[in-house]
Write a protein that binds this DNA or RNA. Structure first.
Lengths: 334, 334
DNA sequence: CTGAAAGCGCTTACAG
DNA sequence: CTGAAAGCGCTTACAG
């Protein structure tokens, strides 16, 4: 910029105005504008966004922290977030916390250092300390997928409770009675809600819950545990006739093992999965699943965040709970 | 920082040195250091990375541009890139080009504005202009997955040719004869290489290639085209007995349609896929596929890029061609 | 052992 | 219509 100013014998002020399309607004003569624009183009002038950000206090960057961007569900959300942000002139920086609160903490701080204008976090839910800090400093923040039920923030989540409740009732309506629920040991509110939805559905229909139908596997060791657990369930007195899996990778592992054991799906055991996997429609039978609206989550997260950044709606926290959709395929029988 | 200086009656210089762990190096008394560190912690001092970057000319940020981050293959690579970069103190900003060279161009420029220290790009291969511009300006750059064969840059790609060649030969060794190749119309060198590998394998074994066994579907319309194409192939005089799919989504679509048509895999038609999908191991039969080393691609890309950024190895372009691995499952028969 | 000063590349109130 | 000057928050050569 200095070079342009020198070369054209104008001040940096003028150059800056013109290059930011404020030429007319500031009554810079058309001729001067023309000259500047031409020169800039010819010399391949590229503005330094860093310097501008330092001056304006806006980086036009948002930070995204997720447990794992290589999980399809999060990858999709990330993709929508990036798309929407880009559309609004924002850039996204991202990192994965790998379900580790310490890493999450480190990432939050590093992104704040980098002066992101706001953060979108699918939290480990083990880092209330930093979330609180951010909020106390009025730092623009939207939680997605997971939120802290005991602490108010902006969030976009899904109605996990309704999701499994509807799915379980769907199975019951199709005549299934011994419905197991297989979940994973993660201290996430979402997981509690999914269990609760299942329990309430069972309770409402049968007046009780059989605890031996509920299995919680280890977050990492679930692959090994899957087969013995299934065999145990299959040995129950009246015979298992359906399973609700609390998340997609459990389903993937589960249907593999059911196949190995030789159980017919859905004839003997019907299956419903929370969450989708890209190939649930090519397995045989195709899997019935509870679909989460990843596009909506991503898009809304950006909208809410930008509203906060731009000073709209920042009195009350925006709490959005989106509905899920049961996508019925053959795996749940008829 | 100014505040700290004022409060402690020290200069910004001293503060800066201490906060960057250069206290000892600069002979700042231990007592002063202690005081500064304590004060900074107590007042929650957060350095402004933007200002530092502006001053040092290093943003410690790398830009990542991919066709589509919600594609599992790219999501995985992105995840490894982020991990490796984070490990080295770098942050990653990313965007998707959606196979559109114009968008790619826009993204490259926007990332350069943001002063990224380097770029990792899985290019649309329709934007040689900007790639050339970057290189002429000695801008640190690594291409991944796709490169411009006619133009030298750093790149990390996979040996697509060997991949399909080996896979095709594997099928031939298992006694298959009428092997079709189904690909997609994308002007990518990778796709040409995959076709070539198939053709050479066929040629070497049978002395000729049957063009009617090669089908190229539309990038967007492949779902619709799949069934008629398959039916056409199945009607061939001597009968189709195997298919090599050039990419994972074609495989997914293909096995769905084969099931609909009622073709038995692998008994009637054996299948091999280039690239993996998370559920290729839970479909029945599990799919044999050509595995790409996504971790290595991601990790190497960051390594090569950082070497260039740090002034090592920047005389010659690093050209890395990684091998693929054929993961044999039941879909290709025995 | 510590500080004053310059400067990274911008933007913006103010002046004329 | 255009410019001089201050300042965003840092780092770094230089001086003492």
């Amino acid at each position: 910029m200095k070079d342009i100013a020198k070369a054209l014998n104008l001040s940096k002020t003028t150059i800056s105005m013109v290059l930011n399309n404020r030429g007319d607004e500031n009554n810079i003569s058309r001729k001067t504008q023309q000259k500047i624009l031409e020169y800039a183009k010819k010399h391949n002038y590229v503005p330094n966004q860093l310097a501008r950000s330092l001056r304006t206090g806006k980086s036009e960057t948002i930070g995204l922290i997720m447990p794992n961007i290589s999980n399809l569900f999060y990858a999709e959300i990330a993709s929508y977030i990036e798309e929407k942000a880009e559309e609004q002139g924002y850039t996204v920086i991202f990192s994965s916390s790998h379900e580790n609160p310490k890493i999450e903490q480190k990432l939050i701080r590093s992104m704040v250092n980098r002066q992101v204008d706001g953060l979108i976090i699918a939290s480990t839910q083990g880092n209330l300390e930093d979330i609180r800090l951010l909020k106390n400093n009025n730092f623009p923040l939207v939680l997605i997928d997971r939120h802290y039920p005991e602490y108010s923030t902006n969030f976009i989540v899904v109605n996990n409770y309704e999701g499994t409740k509807n799915a379980t009732k769907h199975l019951i309506n199709l005549g299934r009675r011994k419905i197991a629920f297989i979940s994973v040991r993660l201290e996430l509110d979402a997981m509690r809600q999914r269990l609760l939805g299942y329990e309430d559905a069972m309770n409402e229909c049968f007046g009780n819950i059989e605890n031996k139908l509920i299995k919680i596997l280890d977050h990492k060791g679930y692959r090994k545990e899957m087969r013995p657990i299934l065999e145990e369930l299959l040995k129950l007195d009246q015979g298992l006739d359906a399973i609700v899996f609390a998340t997609h990778y459990l389903t993937a592992s589960g249907i593999g093992e059911l196949k190995n054991i030789g159980v017919k799906v859905p004839k003997e055991v019907a299956i419903v999965s929370f969450d989708e996997m890209s190939a649930f429609d090519i397995v045989d039978p195709p899997i019935t699943y509870i679909m989460q609206p990843s596009e909506e989550i991503g898009t809304l997260a950006v909208e809410v965040l930008l509203d906060v950044i731009n000073g709209k709606n920042n009195k009350e926290d925006q709490k959005v709970v989106l509905g899920t959709k049961l996508v019925v395929r053959k795996s749940c029988g008829t």
